[in-house]
Design a binder for these strands. Sequence first.
DNA 1: CAAGTTTACCTTTTT
DNA 2: GGTAAACTTG
Length: 673
Amino acid sequence: MLTDLNPTQREAVLYNEGPLLVIAGAGTGKTKVITNKIAYLIKELGIPSENILAVTFTNKAADEMLKRVTLLVGKAGKGIWIGTFHSIALKMLRRDGHLLDLPANFSVIDQDDRLGLLRDILKNLNIDSKKYPPKIYLNLISNYKNTLEFVDEIPLTFEEYKFDEVFKMYQYALKSMAVVDFDDMLSLVVRLLKRNPELKYFYRDLFKYVLVDEFQDTNSIQLEFLTNIVDKDGKITAVGDDDQSIYGWRGAEIKNILNFETYFPNTKVIKLVDNYRSGFNILDTANRLIANNKYRKGKDLRPFKDATGEVFVHRFENEIEEAQFVANKISDLLAKGISPDEIAILYRANAQSRNFEVELNKMGIHFKVLGGVGFYGRREIKDILAYLRLFSNPYDIQSFKRAIKVPHRGVGDVTVEKIAQFAMDNGLNIWTALKEFSSQFSPKVRSAIDGFIAVFDGLEEVSVSEMIKNIVERIDYESFLNQYEDQFEAEKRMDNVNELVNAAVQLEEQGVLTLADFLATTTLQTSSDEDADGFVRLMTIHSAKGLEFDTVFLTGLEEGVFPLYRAMENEWEMEEERRLCYVGITRSKERLFITHVDRRLFYGKAQFLKPSPFIFEIKSMFDKKRTEEKVFHEKFGEGKVLKIEGSGEDARVTVNFQRYGYKTIIAKFLKFV
DNA sequence: CAAGTTTACCTTTTT
DNA sequence: GGTAAACTTG
């Protein structure tokens, strides 16, 4: 079993005396180490799978890991606890949340609804949401919950923000709606463990072996969670790479990995630096870039693969040409027989995907856009889910407000707002509120409300997938869509709704049977978790973390776009951007295309852009190596290289010819001697 | 007071 | 180029 591991990898698998930190550079086989370690624990050491906890960064990574473990140990791996911090936390809260007075069927509010809720609160408190956008509050609240203390970054105008009041109202609303937000899930679990030591010891005993992937992206709450469920001499294996820490903005603490020994004093550290993924030039490029960072432990990846790897830098006039180039190149690659699964287009921000989508469509290339507005974030899905959420948790006023308005049934904003207020003020669930408030309705509204209530008739009898079908039919969602959208759009949305039914059926087959579990799963499922087999993938670099492809297009390397303007003034943020670029580069195995443009549209307006500083950092060594090199040209004879723009055979090379002086020549007409 | 229409605002990155 | 708030109409 351990035969295809190298000595350091094997050491990491075999060391099970106490805390272990594996610093694993990109492509050094970190997933292999984790899966083999789990297999080793189960098969060789005979550890029951229930005693193993594996934490991953995404649901997809969790699925993938379980698949690989199953391949190694078969059914013996079935009971393993595997998932993201959030999904593990949810499982624990479902089990023991009552100790914190959490209602049994609490639901999870998604980011979108949090924003909507904050919008309502700001309106209520007469806070000008132009001056103080809800988003700011979302961040403040998130930071607060994640650090459990107010941090320095909180602006001086803090008082003006009325943060205290907003926060209190926000918490009150969550409580009365019986929902928790993303940040709560972790902090509540930590609270649970702290207040109930017997529970803490229960889990310490249960999780005899804990493995954490992508440790560089854990935040302080997550670390606190870990130190609660693992003794300081416990058998925890943390795997990560400080050079790939790209979630600082989300509260990730790079110091968690840099100071791991502080939390687990008797830690053994193993470094994996043999890279099996990328060709030499790609690795060289990555190493050169990341060497510009100051705040790092410092390591160079060693090439192990017997391949050169190709790195190209291409410059274009605008984003359309960039997209056309990428689409053409992909078409060539596909024609050569390269699988679409091995091709990815990466960018800094989701908004950049559009042009690629257009050009790929023109070429008839099948692709999938991952991330951005995910499946469960789509309007039609949220509409249907609102019904389900309300049915599962009748205190969920936000969902009521959405559901009652889809389709229009003669109950408008004003009435809805009144009902919502009445329910909130009196702590009533929606059904009771509607009943008690019904005397104030006009006959028209009353019959509309009756119709609304009737939608839920008998739903408790059927499975989740049947519920969805029933709701969609009863509200005649299809007609609603057709009324407001053109046929094509309406059909697309209906397809998505049917896809939701499929998702429910699938989850039912996997044993997710209750509505509450279904809803929680959908909320925790992100768009990056979607399946894209057989498609070219488009995604942000953030969502590409942990993935690898033969060919990677790293696009939009312009000052202000990547790195972002706002990051450029700040050394620390700049380093995170650089790490992000490093992650992007190291996704590629054989070919890496880096592209940048001279101008790009921002909200419909053209902006001129300089190439990203990262391009210069990457190229400087290459330039130096090649500058002063002697070249020969058929017509101009011998000369010395001064500057190279672009790369590959199309690069423009400025040469000082002995007899003809300075000339700029396309590289393919030059012979390097 | 509800539904339809126009304007404003926007763009980091995500569990 | 898309959505949600603001505005208008019936």
